[in-house]
Design a protein around this nucleic acid. Structure first.
Lengths: 248, 248
DNA sequence: CGTGCCCTTGATGTGTTTCAAACTGGGTGG
DNA sequence: CCACCCAGTTTGAAACACATCAAGGGCACG
């Protein structure tokens, strides 16, 4: 790996290269912990399976917390909704990732969770989770790490939204999504965006037109090919460079 | 309280008024859990006391996680730092609030923690915390709530940074800080900003000049009085209205 | 009584939003 | 099977909010 100054860091760095680790820009809790294969311990807690069809809600803001969820298949978004109809997407969750961690503090969900395609989740009863965490310190540790990583993701998003220009935001988003999909067996250089430009924009603090323009610009630069929701990465290193131009 | 449509929600709503709770915009983990008086259980874990003088670091990004900290006195900021010297403030921590929760996931700190004035913290050894959490499910629960609330704060910040204009951001920040200081015994209508305009700006995704301009605008509107770092709230309801104008 | 840091204010520049129009593809019903 | 429709997308032109650049002022500190 030639770069030492500007690599996107979505997974934990190898111990040896940690000194003052550069930022992992964005990224749901990394896979070691959140992907089913690896978080097998926590997944044993899985209760009933539940399917959620495209467009419908798994839970909504204000609902009492009864269970947490792990995505089995499909894709979700979580979003905060304001009275006036506006909303902010706070995350997109792929298979193996958790939903509802933000509701533990108050016992109520703070966001809506919407399936962006037909999906299935494992239901993990909160009561049962609690009692299992009592038994196993390993599980407890895993669960704490899960929450901690979600905190880190929040901080990374603050950085992205607070100090990066539109092009960097979109490039970072594409890289992040590609890597996460790749870790689930998708090709490393092609990507299907299952969310609308509007939803991407909401997540990135941009208007849909701006997202569209950035995609077009990257297409014109020869970095990628866009046909509707299909994206082909033609020049991944260039995309990484775009994601690390820390300007505004 | 006359408003039912636009009140800033920094603490948990009373159970009766919860239905579709409107957003608590911004706010460190609310006080029930994080203030020493209330999180007494967790505070029993406090090990050594450590003082940090103004301007110096409690920990820095990349440091191995050995303990978590609870602010006893003084004020901290946490920030992510980029190679190029730029940085993003991810939070300001007052007495009773925790530092280091983001480091549990990887075992290393992901941010720098800097004292903005002479400060003192309780040191909570991570190993010891772990073993205590094993013993008491009540403590474990409290700790999980703490982390969950920090996740919620992250989401609220995404909303603030992603969809609110400068005036709303600054007004929200002032309200939040006033409330948190008030809960610690400070007057409800006066405030000392212990951070620079630049640090506020970094936290809010704005340039220092913009922060300054917004403060001046609110002063001109008769909402508050600003003399250097001292802020007098002349019209708190008006400030709340500014914080809820959800425009950009 | 300077010297340096922080803050304010003005003038100008620019990236993103807003507004508007046209295009696309997938789905539906005639 | 085609025509239509509609949600989503692209693109352009104009407006605007915030950033940038620059200058001046105040307070704290040595």
């Amino acid at each position: 790996m030639p770069v030492s100054h500007a690599s996107v860091r979505l997974v934990e760095p190898a111990p040896s290269e940690v000194e003052r680790p550069r930022l992992r820009v964005v990224g749901l809790p990394p896979l070691e912990e959140s992907h089913p294969d690896v978080a097998a311990g926590l997944l044993e807690l899985a209760g009933t399976r539940r399917t959620v069809e495209r467009g419908s809600l798994l839970y909504r803001s204000g609902d009492r917390l009864t269970s947490l969820y792990v995505v089995q298949s499909g894709l979700f978004k979580t979003c905060l909704s304001l009275e006036d109809g506006r909303s902010q997407v706070t995350g997109f969750q792929l298979s193996g990732e958790w939903l509802g961690l933000d509701s533990i503090g108050s016992g109520r969900h703070h966001s809506d969770a919407v399936a962006l395609e037909d999906a299935a989740v494992c239901t993990i009863g909160y009561e049962e989770l609690e009692s299992r965490l009592l038994e196993s310190s390993e599980l407890r540790h895993q669960f704490q790490r899960l929450m901690s990583r979600e905190i880190v993701r929040g901080h990374d998003m603050m950085l992205l939204l607070g100090s990066m220009c539109a092009e960097v935001r979109v490039a970072t988003f594409l890289l992040d999504l590609t890597q996460r999909m790749h870790a689930r067996g998708s090709p490393a250089t092609s990507l299907v965006l299952r969310m609308t430009r509007d939803e991407m924009g909401s997540f990135l603090g941009l208007k849909l037109e701006t997202v569209s323009r950035m995609l077009s610009r990257m297409r014109d630069l020869g970095v990628l090919e866009v046909t509707q929701r299909h994206v082909q990465l033609l020049d991944a290193p260039a995309l990484q460079r775009l994601a690390h131009r820390e300007e505004r």
